[in-house]
Amino acid sequence: MSGLPYLLRKILVLLLFIALQSVAIVMLVNNSYFQQNAILTVVRGWQANMWEKRSSWVAFTNLKVTNEALTKENLELRTELARLSFLKHEQYAGTENHIPVSDTFSFIPALVVKNSVNHQHNHLIINKGLADGVHPDMGVIGSQGIVGVVSYAANHYALVISLLNTQQRFTAEHKKTGTFGTLRWNGTHYKRALLSEIPQHTEVAEGDTVVTSPFSLIFPDGIPLGTVTSQSLKQGTAWELEIELFQDFKTLRYVNVVCRSKEEELREVTQKEEEAL
């Protein structure tokens, strides 16, 4: 021992001290519940802390995967919801075939069997026809807005002129001011439409909602259609608003045909109006 350098000797002594102390502490911990518990409490605390940090880090790095999974699940749930609501409609349909919504309107649930969004004059075919009470000139709505209007009805199928048809016009109104105008597709994008003939004095802002108008004879009023994304003045007299539609025509599957009660009387009145002109 005396032959070794001073520093080395000190280190050896220190190591010996640590070793002996460790043995003593290990004995202490192994043989006494109290001390064991006290040490383990501290150690477990550290461990829990570390595990928590690690798991929060892992969760953060996995956010992308989680988001994708959630999106997928969301989609499945939406699909299921739509299916169930359709089944519910079917149930109603089984009894009466008409779901009364108000005194004026009732719905006939239908399934879209053919649809297109990539032409200028798009059409849909639905699986309900004359036998189910579907007649030409009835409105068709989806879950998030209007879809179109029935142009021809066979016994069990009907042809619907889609909103995505540059020749079709609907009446819609700017919800905040109640000003109505003409809604038509702009022919370029299946989520975009134009609301024109809004008077120049109307105060319109981006994000305003556009709903169906009470002056429409084929749709219930107040169905939200979309939001304003931009506005431009046409011929110096009226706004033309670009609308981003809520309804996604690409995923359209379940629709409702809108029946107006006392339709015959209404038709009679409109005929008189035309005659008067």
Partner: peptide, 28 residues
């Protein structure tokens, strides 16, 4: 010091094993 620590360890160990309330206390 090293020798002293070894003696101390032995002493404390015997004390703990033979009579102490908690093993390792006297040793440490």
């Amino acid at each position: 010091t090293a020798g002293l620590m070894l003696w101390a360890f032995a002493f404390g160990f015997f004390l703990d094993v033979l009579g102490g309330p908690t093993l390792g206390l006297h040793t440490s």
